[in-house]
């Protein structure tokens, strides 16, 4: 929409062409600057991961490592990164499986029996609006009483509580798009409910289940406050390992960057592939309205 098009009489074609080109070049230039702004701190962390210890604290800093090294990856792994990845995997995977087992039947019932914008859908989703600091105090006091503090089970429960509303909502939205006639046909043919589930519902909703599973994994993997409060020395998830590493030791930025990359790299690649669904999940909080 260049301003030139406003005039009812069109300007000579050559002039229009130049203006368009300049406008387009300016737009691309601004966008490239924005992309650089978006990526700069992350890229810097990435570069730092390959710097040897001596180069980390040089002032002014070196743009590229003079002696690139991989020692930070080994060091980061042994200093707590490996432990963090293990515990995060345990907690994130278990809570995701639990979310799917509880969530899929509920989503099916919700999709087939309730309106997408009804009271029940909204109530379930509104749990996701809570600022996590509110449930976390209650969870802490409760877990102290139940001896679930600093256990895998406790954290798995907390993450399931956090992710289940989203999983139900996403799956219900997905199941609503599956034509009901498939199920009806199976039922008329006299198929038991389990067959219908296994042969029709499960294969058809597999992409939805994958999406919900990956998102739930991702949120549990990134979550910090719950693991900070609800666990001590027994369970140390990755974000907590990173925070401990930073706050209670001399910050070795190379190792920290290395852990960050190993922990976030696969996730980032995945999230580029799943952007569409990720955005949907961020906007889910209003989906029940």
């Amino acid at each position: 929409m260049s301003a030139a098009t406003r005039a009812p009489r069109l300007p000579p074609r050559a002039k229009l062409r130049t203006e368009e080109l300049v406008g387009s070049a300016v737009r691309h230039a601004i966008l490239i600057v924005l992309v650089i702004l978006c990526l700069a701190p992350i890229v810097w962390l990435l570069i730092t991961a390959f710097k040897p210890y001596g180069e980390l604290f040089s002032s002014p800093p070196t743009l590229f490592p003079i002696h690139p090294t991989l020692v930070n990856f080994a060091g980061g792994w042994s200093v707590g990164g490996g432990r963090g990845i293990r515990d995060s995997l345990i907690v994130a995977t278990s809570s995701t499986v639990l979310c799917l087992i509880l969530g899929f039947p509920a989503a099916y019932a919700l999709a087939r029996r309730f309106s997408a914008h009804g009271q029940l859908s909204f109530t379930i989703l509104s749990l996701r609006m809570l600022p996590p600091i509110v449930p976390v105090i209650g969870f802490y006091l409760m877990f102290q009483k139940l001896h679930l503090y600093d256990t895998y089970i406790g954290l798995i429960i907390a993450y399931t509580f956090m992710n289940l509303p989203l999983v139900i909502w996403l799956l219900a939205e997905f199941i609503r798009q599956i034509p009901r006639s498939y199920e009806d046909a199976a039922r008329i043919d006299g198929a038991p409910w389990f067959w219908m589930f296994r042969d029709i519902l499960l294969p058809l909703s597999a992409p939805g289940i994958m999406t919900a599973a990956i998102l739930s994994m991702m949120f549990a993997w990134n979550e910090f406050l719950f693991s900070l409060v609800l666990t001590g020395d027994n369970v140390i998830t990755l974000p907590k390992a990173l925070a401990d590493f930073f706050l209670f030791q001399e910050p070795n930025w190379g190792q920290l960057g290395a852990i960050g990359i190993v922990a976030m790299g696969p996730l980032l690649v995945l999230s580029y592939l799943m952007q569409r669904y990720l955005i949907r999940s961020f906007t889910a909080e209003l989906g029940g309205r």
Partner: peptide, 26 residues
Amino acid sequence: SLLLTPMMLAPIVVGFAWELFLNPIY
């Protein structure tokens, strides 16, 4: 896609990246 990168990252990693990026000395 590229502009969406920041929101894909764990807030804790974002915190560290900025801590390093803004460090007054190095």
